[in-house]
Amino acid sequence: MERNIVYIAVFAALIAALGLLPKVTLLSGIPITAQSMGIMLCGAMLGARKGALAVLLFLGLVALGLPLLAGGRGGLGVFTTPWAGFLFGFPVAAFATGLSMRWMRGARVGVAAGVASVFGGIGVLYLIAVPYYMAMTGAALPDAIATAMIPFVPGDLVKAVVAGAITGTIYKARPRAVMSRA
């Protein structure tokens, strides 16, 4: 039990730390950050439930006003922007990534984590973020996909590969640390 709490807290801190990396803001105003890779790692490393809990802890701290999002943003206001669908999708994406790891028990850990990150950390995340963007802006589906999805997919694919490599490397060194496989 205590080990689980520590892992959840450490991964919430990891998501926050990844927000310290410089963000790149597109012309649309959407920031590209490394924090989505943290979401992928939460699911791949901790599994569905604990991964989602780590993300919820992180989002709770953001809601309390801690400036943990990329660019030092925090507070309830960040949950009211057209891009908040990504924030609302983060715990679901971590859960889906962890669940995918369970489904791919027979695959090599690094490969499974990369594929799970693509499914959960990209696919599931955009299934939430794009409709939310549409609802908040009134954009049609093609416009929402062009603005809130397509510019990010190449970077997200790189993050999924890196998350898979990190998870596979940690598994080789300390198999029990990858709780999605323990």
Rank of each mutant, 00 (worst) to 15 (best):
163 A>I: 07
140 A>V: 13
165 A>F: 14
8 I>K: 00
171 Y>F: 15
107 A>D: 00
178 V>L: 11
2 E>C: 04
174 R>A: 11
135 A>E: 08
109 V>I: 13
111 V>R: 11
59 L>F: 09
111 V>T: 13
29 G>M: 07
12 A>N: 06
139 A>L: 10
178 V>R: 06
144 A>S: 13
37 M>G: 01
42 C>S: 03
138 G>L: 01
115 V>A: 09
146 A>L: 05
26 L>K: 10
50 K>I: 01
95 F>C: 07
169 T>H: 11
159 K>M: 01
28 S>A: 14
68 L>K: 09
17 A>C: 07
23 K>W: 07
141 L>C: 01
94 A>Y: 01
29 G>S: 06
102 R>D: 02
25 T>L: 10
88 F>I: 02
7 Y>W: 15
15 I>A: 10
68 L>W: 14
75 G>V: 08
174 R>Q: 09
97 T>M: 10
75 G>T: 09
22 P>W: 15
10 V>H: 06
92 V>F: 12
10 V>R: 02
96 A>Q: 05
87 L>D: 02
71 G>D: 13
90 F>K: 01
119 F>M: 12
25 T>D: 10
7 Y>V: 00
82 P>E: 08
31 P>S: 08
61 L>R: 03
10 V>M: 10
121 G>Y: 07
32 I>A: 09
98 G>Y: 02
55 V>C: 10
38 G>P: 02
51 G>E: 04
65 G>R: 10
48 A>V: 06
57 L>K: 00
37 M>Q: 03
84 A>I: 01
5 I>R: 11
110 G>W: 15
96 A>T: 10
139 A>T: 04
83 W>K: 14
125 L>T: 02
94 A>N: 05
85 G>L: 06
